[in-house]
Design a protein around this nucleic acid. Structure first.
Lengths: 141, 141
DNA sequence: ATGTATGCAAAACATTTGCACCTGG
DNA sequence: CCAGGTGCAAATGTTTTGCATACAT
């Protein structure tokens, strides 16, 4: 029984919340938009409204289960929190997203914040570039 | 005559573009939304439509005159490019924005991107925290 | 039972676009 | 004069909300 995570987060265990959590856990894609999830639900013939998807994702975020990111296309994407913090690098051509952690960067962020008199609470670091892997459109040039 | 910047950017010198550039240069606020600029124009009794503000800002961005940022509220803010690159730290309580540059962070970003096989083109680093300065609401606690 | 969650449709919001008119060079 | 710029209104795309109904505990 996997409703544990939900109950532990103080959320009533309902079918929409279970299904959405399931999709987030279904590892094939780590960063999904509300619309992505909604489409996935339709494919599985689940009768769940888009509004509910947004509501549930917002609750999950408040409960610390997921993180909301704003990549530069403006549309929000959500990612299941698997404990470890990490930053992102996004390919401008194929939209592939890789994750990384660099303790040097993390440390210096804290130092910089202190120097400016801030008590740091969070940060968002996104690198943009070209990955030029097989399958990436930038390869064609 | 200040239309020089515009003409140099390959843009026809028109009244809306001049007025908007003027507001961006009017140093009191460095990060403004399209709506902010529109309101400022209304206060000055300029008859410029919101659509034009968006169009002009997009052109300015394409011309490299301004940079568009997505802070975490989702609404885009624009900032005049004064040459030097910098990152941002935003106070979660009073929304004050400070700028900083840390060459250590910059260097490691390049290193990380290379390690992951990316040719880095740009990045967005935003720290979030509490500044606890006089006038900052977090002070009241 | 009862308070909360959901679905649907409509609202709200930021941003973009179509089109007739105006303006800068 | 004429290509390009602008205002207005309407369209778009994403996210939120109101409300009557359905569900978990």
């Amino acid at each position: 029984m996997e409703g544990k995570d939900l109950r532990k987060a103080g959320l009533k265990v309902t079918l929409p919340r279970l299904k959405i959590l399931e999709i987030l856990e279904g590892g094939n894609v780590r960063h999904v938009s509300a619309e992505d999830i909604y489409k996935r639900l339709l494919e599985t013939n689940e009768d769940i409204g888009l509004a509910t998807v947004y509501r549930v994702l917002t609750q999950f975020e408040a409960a610390g289960l997921v993180t909301r990111h704003h990549f530069e296309d403006g549309m929000a994407v959500f990612e299941l929190n698997h404990g470890t913090h990490h930053d992102h690098i996004v390919c401008l051509d194929c939209n592939r997203v890789e994750e990384f952690v660099d303790s040097g960067i993390e440390d210096r962020q804290t130092t910089v914040a202190e120097r400016l008199g801030f008590e740091i609470r969070d940060h968002s670091l996104i690198l943009y570039g070209r990955c030029r892997r097989p399958g990436c459109p930038s390869r064609k040039s």
